[in-house]
């Protein structure tokens, strides 16, 4: 568990760690537990839905899914030694390169895309042309549209700063790709709208508080009071609700 937290914190957005609670503990209790253990404050996701089935008889169990969506290893973490970290490092490297089996003519398009230059990647794919070039272009467009869809969901979930950052990155990378840029600009305008001002303020307050207390003693009386203050000040926003939830989580008796 702490090893996966460290992996998430080491690689940031290059890796996605998903913690799956497998003992039917209710969501509030396992979230409170994760806060108490100082495992929060990073990009890891927490769920009790099994993305893939477990293969062993007990816990903990770990799995690595590669950049092509294949399960590369799975089992008791202690059995893997350094192999786990090495596999993750190799996959992070792969994520910045052209996928295996990419024709030599399209490698430049893929490396350009991996560097975040979508317009450049599309131009390279168009230069190659034919079925291969068109297929690569279609993949790039699909991936950008998926990122846009995710940014929209971030906004719906109240993650305003994250949506803003994702859209800013897309705006930079899609310069010159008119169709995609139009969609990005539309979302950017929505983010900047006055209706989102209250949520933006609340997100700033919650994000600053939660990242600060995650590695301290999150549920200390002083921190809970601060969370209550954020909840009161930003009532009616999603981030205000997050602060209120934090206060409720702090009341859960984890020794039951």
């Amino acid at each position: 568990m702490p090893a996966s937290v460290k992996l998430q914190e080491l690689y940031g957005d290059d890796v996605q760690v998903i913690f799956i609670e497998c003992q039917n503990t209710d969501k509030n209790t396992y979230e409170a537990f994760a806060w108490k253990m100082k495992w929060m404050g990073n990009n890891a996701l927490w769920t009790n839905e099994r993305v893939i089935p477990t293969v062993g008889d007990g816990l903990p169990e770990v799995a690595v899914i590669g950049v092509d969506g294949t399960v590369l290893l799975q089992g008791y973490p202690g059995d893997f030694g350094k192999k786990l970290e090495e596999t993750v490092a190799a996959e992070v490297k792969k994520s910045k390169e052209a996928p295996e089996g990419t024709p030599a003519s399209l490698k430049k398009a893929w490396t350009t895309f991996a560097k975040g230059d979508v317009s450049g990647a599309l131009a390279e794919a168009d230069k190659v042309g034919g079925d291969e070039g068109s297929a690569a272009r279609a993949v790039f467009v699909r991936r950008v549209e998926a990122r846009l869809a995710r940014a929209k969901r971030m906004l719906e979930m109240g993650d305003v700063a994250e949506a803003e950052a994702a859209v800013a990155a897309l705006q930079k990378s899609c310069k010159g790709a008119a169709d995609l840029l139009a969609q990005v600009t539309e979302l950017s305008t929505r983010i900047a709208s006055p209706e989102l001002a209250a949520e933006r303020d609340a997100a700033k307050a919650w994000s600053s508080f939660s990242s600060k207390v995650a590695k301290e003693k999150p549920f200390d009386e002083g921190n809970v009071k601060k969370a209550q203050g954020i909840a009161d000040k930003h009532k009616g926003t999603k981030n205000g609700a997050r602060a209120a939830r934090f206060v409720e989580l702090s009341k859960i008796n984890l020794n039951r």
Binding site: M1, Q16, V17, E21, T29, V62
Partner: peptide, 13 residues
């Protein structure tokens, strides 16, 4: 898609 994923199956107890 295109990102390595680490899944950690755990139990609170």
């Amino acid at each position: 898609l295109g990102k390595p994923i680490v899944i950690d199956f755990w139990g609170k107890n």
